[in-house]
């Protein structure tokens, strides 16, 4: 594998960039295609769209942003942001999803 090199002099070959680019375009077409699936699959469609977006973001981060070839420290910081984002989403949405479990007088 390419790890172990000095992080800063690591030059990613153009071929890798092109492959990632093609993969990104294919995934983009897949997202749009999935949105036009017939029938009502709100949840399924959302899951597909977000999964594809996550895969695309990971590809960009790993290859275009060189995290795959970087030190553990860069890995740590790159993942910290997304981890904290999840904390924010889960705890905030947790409130909204459980708000009506207990019927409250005066609320419909």
């Amino acid at each position: 594998m390419t790890n172990g090199h000095d992080t800063h002099s690591h030059i990613v070959p153009i071929k890798v960039y092109l492959l990632v680019y093609v993969a990104l375009l294919v995934l983009l077409v897949a997202t749009v295609g999935a949105a036009y699936l017939p029938g009502h699959h709100t949840l399924l469609n959302n899951v597909i769209a977000l999964t594809i977006a996550v895969i695309k973001a990971v590809l960009v981060i790993l290859y275009f942003m060189h995290v795959r070839y970087s030190t553990r420290l860069t890995w740590l910081w790159a993942s910290a942001g997304f981890f904290w984002l999840l904390i924010m989403f889960i705890l905030t949405l947790g409130d909204y999803f459980t708000r009506h479990w207990v019927p409250v007088l005066g609320w419909e």
Binding site: T31, H41, A49, L50, K56, V60, I61
Partner: peptide, 19 residues
């Protein structure tokens, strides 16, 4: 690339809302 990633999420979230 970060600006690109933001758009990668914005596009499906805003433009491709399923019914």
């Amino acid at each position: 690339h970060f600006v690109d990633i933001v758009w990668i999420f914005l596009f499906p979230l805003l433009y491709l809302i399923p019914r």
